[in-house]
Design a protein around this nucleic acid. Structure first.
Length: 434
RNA sequence: UCCCUGGUAGCUCAAUUGGUAGAGCGACUGGCUGUUAACCAGUAGGUUCCAGGUUCGAGCCCUGGCCGGGGAGCCA
């Protein structure tokens, strides 16, 4: 427990009429000569402390007047309801203690800053309102993810980050030295999740994921977080049922608990209010029709590009689930559709509002011979996958799951311009600092 | 890897045809008893990304390099 000589700004409403101590930093200040307005933040919120010259001891009034942005301060004041305050409450300042007077804080509220400058100062940028709100929404989403799976019988199973080989082979991996051999940073925990499903029935893997692709877009990070449920005895329909229920749960939770933050972010919540299961389900073939109807050039059999995804999702005001892509463009572990042999039992969930894919998943190949053949076809080293093949040798069952990209989900729900704002410290093609 | 675009004050940007490098914001000083991106007045602040070249003269033109930003492909 913390000592009680501190009141958090979020709790001020319970202390009206009383003197409280707020420990924090100066967010901004204004003055009219004989009256100072100090906007103090403490991480839970921002409150304005008002100091009047002839109501305060001279040294305290003077100190209040010379405080600079982000100076660390402890202020005392009497909580007052005030319609003029945006939060509804203000402090009548009674005392200020200065811990450090800051000179030349780089980020100002009044001037504009470019993304490169702000990302260089990410460690300070996080103190500003919108970044603060975005990361609180992220924290809420992460909690919702855990709550959903924890309360629905899934066991959390962490997958290793250092792995012996590619999970999917095709994408670029970060290579690291591992004593006398090479290891790779995980690009997906899914294969290990399948191990978990065979051991526990329902599991979810939740952790960081790494892709060494040289992507430079608003949707890409080289290090991002992914949650990957995996379910034994599940078919493609089960996977889609879980995906839509799961997304609905997350969106509702944020709408319930993070109203203030969404308001700070100026997020129009109307589109989010519409998110309710069931979601529309269309096949790859039907999606191709939508692309052609939109007049885009598209060669049947290819994967969808960003403009294609937008053309598809524009037809719906909920996330749309596109299933049964051509087998040829999907990963080796996808199960072949027995009714359409050229298709895979897979699903991508495309978020509305132009966000694109937030979930990819499906039913897994469960036949040993088929999987052996696929590993060979994809040119993957069989030796690295022996343990994975064992799952098909010793009690194979139909099973499936999906992966949700946390940052893309946060980006969608917050209405962020770029995923780099949805993670505290983004790692990108040209960004390894701070 | 490819396409587009940029690098000038702490930040965001301007600078006509190649002719003395400017504004807003921030900082600093002073003023103001209700400010909400406060306002008003003043002050300081420059290796124009780097190297070379053309020119009487280069922020501007040429060559090479470095570093960003946006997008594509691939993916979540």
């Amino acid at each position: 427990m913390l000592k009680k000589d501190q009141t958090y700004i979020s709790e001020l409403k319970h202390h009206v009429g009383k003197e409280v101590t707020v420990k924090g930093w100066l967010y901004n200040s204004r003055s009219s000569g004989k009256i100072h307005f100090l906007q103090v933040r403490d991480g839970t919120g921002i409150v304005q402390a008002v100091g009047v010259k002839n109501e305060l001891p001279e040294p305290i009034f003077e100190l209040a007047g010379k405080l600079t942005q982000e100076s660390s301060i402890i202020v005392k004041g009497i909580v007052r309801e005030d319609k003029r305050a945006s939060s509804g409450f203000e402090l009548t300042l009674t005392d200020v203690k200065l811990l450090q007077l800051v000179a030349d804080y780089p980020i100002s509220h009044q001037s504009t800053h470019g993304p490169a400058f702000l990302m260089d100062n990410r460690h300070l940028w996080l103190r500003s309102k919108k970044q603060h709100a975005t990361l609180r929404v992220r924290a809420e989403i992460v909690k919702a993810i855990r709550d959903y799976f924890d309360s629905n019988g899934y066991v959390l199973m962490d997958a290793p980050i250092l792995t012996p080989a590619a999970c999917e082979g095709t994408t670029n991996l970060f290579e690291v030295g591992y004593f006398d051999e090479k290891a790779y940073l995980s690009q997906s925990g899914q294969l290990y999740g399948e191990v978990g499903a065979m051991a526990f029935g329902k599991v979810y893997v939740f952790g960081p994921t790494f892709r060494a692709e040289k992507s430079k877009t608003r949707k890409h990070l080289t290090e991002f977080w992914m949650v990957e449920p995996e379910i034994a005895y599940a078919d493609l329909d089960d996977v889609m049922n879980v995906a839509e229920e799961f997304i609905t749960f997350i969106v509702h939770r944020v709408l319930e608990n993070r109203k203030e933050e969404l308001k700070t972010l100026e997020r129009n919540t109307a589109p989010l209010e519409k998110i309710n299961a069931p979601f529309p389900r269309i096949s790859y073939d039907e999606a191709v029709e939508l692309i052609k109807k939109a007049g885009l050039p598209f060669e049947y059999g290819n994967d969808f590009g960003a403009p294609d995804e937008e053309a598809i999702s524009k037809n719906f005001d909920k996330p749309v689930m596109v299933h049964r892509y051509p087998l040829a463009i999907k990963a080796f572990y996808m199960k072949q559709d027995p009714e359409h042999l050229d298709k895979a039992l897979c699903v991508d969930v495309l978020a509305p509002e132009g966000i694109g894919e937030i979930i990819g998943g499906g039913q897994r190949a469960d036949d040993l011979e088929y999987l052996e053949k696929k590993i060979a076809e994809h040119g993957l080293p069989r030796k690295a996958f022996e343990w994975y093949l064992d799952l098909r040798k010793y009690g194979t069952v139909p099973h499936g799951g999906f992966g949700l990209g946390v940052e893309r989900a946060v980006s969608w729900i917050c209405g962020s311009e770029h995923v780099r704002e949805t993670i505290p410290f983004a790692r990108m093609l040209n960004r390894l600092y701070p």
